[in-house]
Amino acid sequence: MPNRPIRDKIKPMEQRAPTLRKVAWLWFAISVAVLVVGFRQAIFLVPTDAAQGDVGRIFYYHVPIAMWSLLFPYLNFAASLAYLYWRKRNPLRALSADAFALASAEVAVVYTSITLITGSIWGRAAWGIWWAWDARLTSLLLLWLLYVSYLMLRRFSSTGQTQTLAAVLSVFAAVDVPIVYMSIRWWRTQHPAPVFFGGPDAGMDPSMLPAFFWNIAGWGLWGIFILLFRFALERRRQIADQEAALQAIEASLEIPR
């Protein structure tokens, strides 16, 4: 039933809502617990870096969040492709895909912003400068600008084709993600060399691994939680808008006595 009325969709959601709410709270609690462990590992348990001192502990937040910041754009890309595929074939499913694309774009901006800011704070302490126009930093700034422009387009465009335009922009934005990832492999940059898959000199001391992996897990769980919460909010808005539109149509069809 690809085009069943919106009211038929609301009923199954109503039946699932208490279970979904419990799962959401459980997921949130697990995310916070893992992040607390990650924080404790990064600040109190990992030995101080011999070369950088305590400022090197920024690594345990900066790198995991940077890694996740390159995943959310791909979720946005996949949802945008799904929207473009379904927008004529199955408009209700396309609306869901569009809500997911918007949610993943917002989370991508959150994670990319944090990566840029924490990197800059670390750079000032380690290099003596807040910013360098090297390939990694510049390509990540470009990615941030692309997703900010995606959100601005969605917020301020009034063409009636906003969702389609945003989906096409998302496809172009996704091209920058592999460039960001490969930038420290393709070019000599001021940014440190890759930690993983970067050749014989890559890798990290075993004492750093627990803090690193706890924070990857924690920020991943947190990111998925806020992504799904934002998606649920957008779906709630869409369904409320459709209900209002249906009521307006029904009211206009009533014959005055």
Binding site: D54, V110, S113
Partner: peptide, 24 residues
């Protein structure tokens, strides 16, 4: 300076993440 920057980085992460969650 290194301690100030460490604290600033961790505080920035928590403020942005919790702020976004609060907004949603």
């Amino acid at each position: 300076m290194e301690n100030r920057h460490l604290l600033a980085a961790y505080a920035t992460v928590l403020v942005i993440q919790v702020g976004y969650l609060a907004r949603v």
